[in-house]
Design a protein around this nucleic acid. Sequence first.
DNA 1: TATCCATCTTGAACGTGTTCAAAAAAATTC
DNA 2: GAATTTTTTTGAACACGTTCAAGATGGATA
Lengths: 230, 230
Amino acid sequence: MDAPNQPSTKTQKGEQTRALILNTALEMFRERGYENTTMRAIAEQARVAIGNAYYYFASKEYLIQAFYDRIHEEHLAVCLPALEKERSLKGRLLVTLRLKISTLEPYHQFAGVLFKTAADPRSPLNPFSPDSDPVRRASIDLFDHIIERSKVRVPKDLRVELPYLLWLYHMGIILFWIHDASLEHRRTYRLIDITVDLVVKLISLASNPLARPLRKTALRLVAELREEGS
Amino acid sequence: MDAPNQPSTKTQKGEQTRALILNTALEMFRERGYENTTMRAIAEQARVAIGNAYYYFASKEYLIQAFYDRIHEEHLAVCLPALEKERSLKGRLLVTLRLKISTLEPYHQFAGVLFKTAADPRSPLNPFSPDSDPVRRASIDLFDHIIERSKVRVPKDLRVELPYLLWLYHMGIILFWIHDASLEHRRTYRLIDITVDLVVKLISLASNPLARPLRKTALRLVAELREEGS
DNA sequence: TATCCATCTTGAACGTGTTCAAAAAAATTC
DNA sequence: GAATTTTTTTGAACACGTTCAAGATGGATA
């Protein structure tokens, strides 16, 4: 059995074929959308037998998993340099979220399917599922980095949970963007502006010593909800 | 063209066939799950041609739409009587949410698919889509009724938005329940207990005259997000 | 070089959701 | 009650995602 995200390719040639299929698929998804791109069409375009696509990707959905990985890479590539110039938490969050949306931009119509499958608790694409673990961790790490190198100081208990909470918040923004039919997704950018402001103020409030009991209660709730099973 | 929720049945016999197919489908969904129930199997069990099922339900997904309607009816049937004995907002919310979860109980494994398709912005099953309008309205009305006949007094501006906000909150609870793998979904019931308490306190806080500016800002944000398009 | 074996590739075949032209049944009109 | 129109019912046919037994490839071993 292979590790979920380490596809079964032991050869350089295999790696090439895998990349070829994935690139072809993503390009076609971007151009025609997910539903309108058949596995047969992908295989044909990549000049490969249909069974071969299934050798590298267990199902059509698994191509989306690979999409997650790529989006995260692209986002990092533009986001990290931009973050160098920002020290305030507010500025850092703004930059990160705006660039996330612009990175996703070419895939907007495709993104619907993305969250459709992601919402199924039994789907491997569910952002909370084990299969998504690596990307999720990497994504949460980015928010950790955002806080770490900003000027804000937050209490330890909150500091620990904050990256995860910000990641959740950022998922909420993406969910909104998916449903956002406004021109150039202006409403999403507006939502980012407004809520980043709110979030930063809220963090500031929650960091106040007077808010300690309330913060403890809230964090206990969060911790409980994150627990698994039983 | 037919109204989305008024299925194309002009005859009493048609209505019967429609009901037969729907009942057969829901029973099979409950017993074997959604994916494991094929349209062919439904048609066979209902002793009907497969094309006939498609005459009444545009797609397999539309059977879920009908499921929404039925769940809401069943919920009302147990909820309204129980609400007669409760006058506090807290008690009324607790009763409503607990009974909602217990009504959904038999369909837990099926519910995953439900939200999977519901999350797709282009799907007619999206709770925000026009096709879902009637059920959504009815569901929001229930929360209106909960507030109206409780003892609480809230400012007009909040009062107007509150049913919708509580409906959103209740959707969040259902989302959690879908992912809840704990025994008898204890964690969901616990979440209800904790968050109902929070929500009631929050409403109380927000109703305080001192909170007026903050409340206005928050409500403006909500109103803006509810807006459609452009 | 010849043999071997893991890796990669193939495409026919299966079951699925869905469509549609045609037939049957029922309702309406004359 | 016959003719006509509307509504309902039928099932073969289509395209899709997916599976799998069989074959091809190419590097390691002898």
